[in-house]
Design a protein around this nucleic acid. Structure first.
Length: 731
DNA sequence: AGGTCGACGTTTTTT
DNA sequence: ACGTCGACCT
């Protein structure tokens, strides 16, 4: 027996690692060595003689899966390769989505899918939703595509079909159900699925094809699920269906770090695990190995304000550490400067490496000002998941070409690139071709290939279309999809050829004459590089595999550029740790976000988000908030976040930025932090001499005037200048 | 056909 | 401040 696997583990950790059979619930507090436990547990199972391929470990992100995979093989001295197929002899370590993808591909025929289906990204999904709305004769002003998409997504995560949606819902649902149905129809016409379909179709496959489920149940005797607090209903069903036979299911999570309820995560999954498995072994990991005593105290006191919570007390052996610095700033630019200055000092005077620091914010938009400041100051930084790499226009263009090569039925992609670069196939020609599709019952791709036989299309357009079709057929041969080529090309070679022959290369060369860093050309080159890496790691991979893999990765795994500060959203920060953490924008309506104002449950989620941020810090925590902040062009007065008020003052050191000056009407000597509170607040009821009674929806200061937006009970929503409008406060 | 310009509504967090 | 949409110009 290999005792080194239990080295440096505490008592509860050993329990979690060695309880091989039966259900296990591990409540893993922040920084309690969770990843170590999971890795060791997988290694332990294998050391017990369990065949690796019987082990299934599910993580929340691809990045986490990759890390875990390499840690496990390092622990065991193995060099497994995971080719993204269902069948291989390594343990399966992946996300729910990629597990479902593998399952759906493997059983494609029985499930009624062609294995070359496209996976649409959010943007394309919304485009299709919009089409569905229009096809149902509803105005897209009534149902915005993004909102509608959200509704559909939420339904899918709860495994609600369009039919059930119509049956169980109220008036709005009745009206909306056809859109959902139509959307599903469009997806299937495109031979495409969305993210949520991966889960839903898998869950339904288990229900409708017991033989599939049985096969998988027998295969995966040992199941482990990380970040269990963030699983949604579909994932819950999938996990428990798989585990039903052997009941060797180990789930790991922390209810205090549940931050994805907004996308369907159901915290009850973890809270009720013991009811699902009354014989479960429950292990609590409460010793924190990450943060100083002060940081832990701040986090603990904050999270205790949540009422919906299982009590848990984290403790640590670490030293007290310094107090957390709270910087009150004049505005967001000042804030960025203050943070930059603080971090530079840590770097220059205390030799802290840039890569040991991170800056967290609530919303992506807040990174801009911070970036500017860092850039001006010459500090290297890297944004984890900023504008998603695969979301960039030029990248999407290239991928759209590839998707059409693999899946000619993918009209979302075909429409995207049919005239990019412009080749004379305009709106009109496209409309005629689409009409033809309907009358002939054939696909746009087929129609395009024989566009010269359609009346009403200009010679030029028809020629281009036919040529493009022929071009695609050549590429399909090259990719080994169509018969005719006996040489096999790598994904990299295919992409390079397509970029050249499609004219995209020239197209983007024209748009920007120089190779700008982060410009279209540079990005395409980066894509080609990453494809080369993919080829190397997956020697026998096809273009189809490549596309599927790429669809599930939101970011071109920037594996933390060496020597750079990391910037990211609080959500992206989960699971990471840094010696120095700066959290910016601790203001009402930012953190907590304005959209959660009146919802106590969502407010608690925001508090957890704040908790997650704090607990990423090992030694030093810096927090800032700004008295003014501009958003959508308007300058708003900000109030300090209630969360800041909830933190223990004795562990905070409050600093006022010199930029505030003394002329803000607040005594500057105050150690207590005060907020710049306008006289009239959101949510306040007011009366107007002409408009009657209403509720203040928004207050913003621009220049000399304060604008208030008021929702009047009878007169509707009005924007007023506070100084002129004679508003009286009610109550 | 297609490109450009101005208006408009709109922005949380992610697989 | 960003992307989409419609109108107008090349």
């Amino acid at each position: 027996m290999d005792d080194t696997l239990l080295e440096e583990l505490n008592e509860p950790q050993i329990q979690a690692v060695t309880q091989v059979t039966g259900p296990v619930l591990v409540i893993a507090g922040a920084g309690s060595g969770k990843t170590r436990v999971i890795t060791r547990r997988i290694a332990w199972l294998i050391a017990q003689g369990i065949p690796p391929w019987q082990i299934l470990a599910i993580t929340f992100t691809n990045k986490a899966a990759g890390e875990m995979r390499s840690r496990v093989s390092r622990t065991l001295g193995h060099g497994w390769r995971d080719f993204g197929q269902l069948i291989h002899d390594a343990p399966t370590i992946c996300t729910f989505h990629s597990l479902c993808l593998r399952i759906l591909k493997h059983y494609a025929q029985s499930v009624g899918l062609k294995p070359n289906f496209s996976i649409l990204d959010v943007h394309d999904q919304q485009k299709l939703v919009k089409q569905a709305i229009e096809a149902c004769g509803l105005s897209s002003s009534q149902f915005s595509p993004s909102q509608s998409h959200g509704r559909i997504s939420a339904a899918k995560n709860k495994l609600i079909t369009p039919e059930q949606f119509a049956k169980t819902g109220g008036f709005v649902e009745q009206k909306f159900a056809p859109v959902y149905r139509k959307y599903q129809e469009l997806l299937s016409q495109n031979n495409a699925v969305d993210f949520d379909d991966l889960l839903m179709k898998t869950a339904f496959a288990f229900r409708e094809h017991p033989e599939i489920l049985q096969e998988l149940q027998e295969r995966f005797e040992y199941i482990l699920i990380d970040e269990y607090q963030d699983t949604n209903h579909a994932q819950y069903i999938i996990a428990h269906a798989l585990a039903m036979k052997h009941r060797n299911i180990c789930v790991v999570g922390d209810p205090d770090q549940s931050i994805y309820a907004w996308r369907g995560a159901d915290i009850r999954n973890i809270l009720e695990f013991e009811q699902d498995y009354p014989d479960a072994l429950v292990v609590r990991l409460e010793q924190n190995y990450r943060s100083s005593k002060r940081i832990l105290a701040i986090a603990s006191q904050l999270i205790e304000k949540n009422t919906q919570r299982k009590k848990k007390s984290l403790w640590t052996d670490k030293p007290d550490g310094p107090r957390a610095k709270v910087i009150v700033c004049a505005d967001e630019r000042d804030e960025a400067q203050q943070i930059t200055q603080q971090l530079r000092e840590l770097h220059d005077r205390h030799q802290v490496k840039w890569s040991d620091m991170a800056i967290f914010y609530r919303i992506n938009a807040m990174s801009r000002v911070m970036e500017d400041s860092l850039r001006r100051s010459g500090i290297p930084y890297e944004i984890a998941r900023g504008v998603e790499f695969y979301g960039r226009k030029e990248i999407k263009d290239v991928l759209a070409y590839l998707r059409v090569i693999v899946n000619p039925l993918d009209e979302v992609s075909l429409e995207r690139i049919i005239n990019v670069p412009t080749r004379g196939i305009g709106e009109k020609a496209l409309q005629i071709m689409k009409l033809h599709c309907i009358t002939e019952g054939s696909s746009l791709f087929e129609v395009m290939c024989s566009a010269d036989r359609i009346l009403g299309i200009s010679k030029r357009a028809a020629n281009s279309a036919v040529n493009l079709g022929a071009q695609f057929m050549r590429w399909r041969k090259m990719a080994g999809i169509e018969q005719g080529s006996d040489v096999s090309f790598t994904v990299q070679e295919i992409i390079e050829t397509v970029v050249k022959e499609s004219g995209l290369e020239e197209h983007y060369a024209k748009e920007s004459d120089v190779d700008i860093e982060g410009g279209p050309q540079a990005n395409i080159n980066e894509l080609i590089n990453s494809a080369a890496e993919f080829d190397e790691e997956n020697p026998q991979a096809t273009l189809e595999t490549y596309l599927h893999q790429v669809s599930l990765v939101s970011d071109a795994d920037h594996r933390g550029r060496e020597g750079a500060i990391t910037l990211m959203t609080l959500h992206a920060a989960k699971g990471l740790e840094f010696p120095v953490v700066a959290m910016i924008g601790l203001e009402e309506n930012i953190l907590p976000h304005e959209r959660v104002r009146d919802n106590p449950e969502q407010l608690e989620e925001e508090r957890r988000l704040c908790f997650v941020g704090i607990t990423r810090a090992q030694e030093q925590l810096i927090i800032s908030w700004a008295m003014n902040r501009s958003s959508r062009g308007l300058r708003n007065r900000q109030m300090m976040s209630q969360f800041l008020r909830e933190m223990p003052a004795e562990h905070l050191e409050i600093v006022r930025s010199p930029a505030i000056g003394g002329d803000w009407g607040y005594s500057s000597g105050d150690t207590e932090i005060e907020s710049a509170e306008p006289a009239i607040r959101r949510g306040q009821r007011v009366r107007h001499p002409a408009f009657g009674e209403g509720m203040v929806v928004d207050v913003s200061a621009t220049g000399q005037h304060t604008r208030v937006q008021v929702d009047f009970r009878h007169a509707g929503r009005k924007t007023l200048i506070l100084e002129y409008a004679r508003l009286t406060v009610i109550g």
